[in-house]
């Protein structure tokens, strides 16, 4: 437990009465929060404290989340990078057809969680997992799962735009090409559709045969989105898609996400609160590998259950 011994002397919560570790009721935070009412000024960082002590903490789940239909169900999911544990008993369900944002300070495991869904972490030596995940009721981590067909059902966009060193056209139709689709009419049609849904058709239509590396950063990222949606995935996974872009490009991508969300389920990692607020329907707040609070975006930003969440979303902590 790398964080169990983290120094706490500088923590403002130090002079408050610490919750009894022996309580063991599993949800000290919510109890504390409801006890102290709306009082946030003396910042009861009890959940964070508990997490730092390495205790197991149940997430504060907004009531709206309870009977939502999830396209991805995550159940007590843990992940280890060799000896280091990166995810702790994550249990959540990603609602179908909506945009869900994962927020949290850097290094809290957002990307790790996202990459676990399409089993991208298989590529890293020494990764171990336990717990379950399922996509539309089929398990992701069952022994016989065909990772290739799993990934074909999910689209992924990375933090840094990573177009392949090929033409724009070939970039977009890459997922179809690897499925053995070589009919020009089909590819042409899919390419146009994907580029239109990624809002880059007008800029790219006259240079489809030119190298994708000649595009600007924002265009490249939209191209990557086009590539991710060309094969009609069930869920789109976006890992901080705007962090490498300038504000205007960011704005365009955000608009794009809202548009795309009408057709796909989107799970987006972001460290930008405004962005989460603008684009998402649901928000999950993670800290040190745990899911801390999960609820509708409006709830998380306006009426968070935990002090920590409020402090974090208002930028006073993190």
């Amino acid at each position: 437990m790398p964080y169990a011994n983290a120094p706490m002397t500088s923590n403002p919560a130090d002079d408050l009465q610490a919750p009894e570790p022996s309580k063991g009721d599993g949800m000290p935070a919510i109890a504390e929060r409801s006890a102290t009412g709306g009082d946030t000024s003396n910042g009861a960082y009890n959940v964070i404290e508990a997490i730092r002590r390495g205790e197991s903490v149940d997430p504060a789940l907004h009531p709206e989340m309870e009977d939502l239909q999830g396209v991805i169900e995550i159940d007590k999911f843990n992940l280890y990078y060799g000896p280091d544990r990166a995810l702790y008993d994550i249990t959540m369900s990603i609602p179908s057809g909506r945009v869900t944002a994962l927020i949290g300070p850097s290094g809290c495991g957002k990307s790790t969680l996202l990459r676990s869904i399409n089993r991208m972490n298989d590529l890293i030596a020494g990764v171990r997992v336990d717990g379950n995940m399922s996509l539309s009721d089929s398990p992701i981590y069952a022994p016989h799962v065909d990772v290739i067909s799993l990934r074909k059902r999910l689209g992924m966009v990375f933090q840094k735009p990573n177009p392949f060193p090929m033409s724009i056209y070939e970039n977009v139709v890459y997922p179809l090409r690897i499925d053995g689709e070589n009919r020009k009419s089909v590819l042409d049609e899919a390419c146009e559709r994907a580029l239109r849904s990624a809002a880059i058709w007008d800029e790219a239509k006259d240079r489809l045969k030119q190298s994708a590396l000649g595009l600007s950063g924002g265009q490249q990222q939209r191209l990557c989105i086009a590539r991710a949606v060309v094969a009609d995935p069930e869920v789109l996974l976006l890992d901080e898609p705007c962090s490498a872009l300038d504000p205007i490009a960011t704005l365009r991508i955000e608009e794009l996400i809202q548009e795309i969300a009408q057709r796909y389920t989107v799970l987006i990692v972001t460290h930008n609160m405004q962005q989460a607020m603008r684009v998402s329907d649901y928000t999950a707040f993670m800290y040190l590998g745990r899911l801390v609070e999960y609820g509708p975006t409006s709830g998380i930003f306006r009426r968070p259950l935990l002090n920590e969440t409020e402090e974090y979303v208002t930028g006073r902590f993190g």
Binding site: M120, L123, R151, N162, I178, D179, A231
Partner: peptide, 15 residues
């Protein structure tokens, strides 16, 4: 060859 290229390809469902 940058790893981001490989990841991009795997992410598209390539073997």
């Amino acid at each position: 060859v940058p790893n981001s290229m490989r990841e991009g390809s795997y992410g598209c469902g390539a073997s």
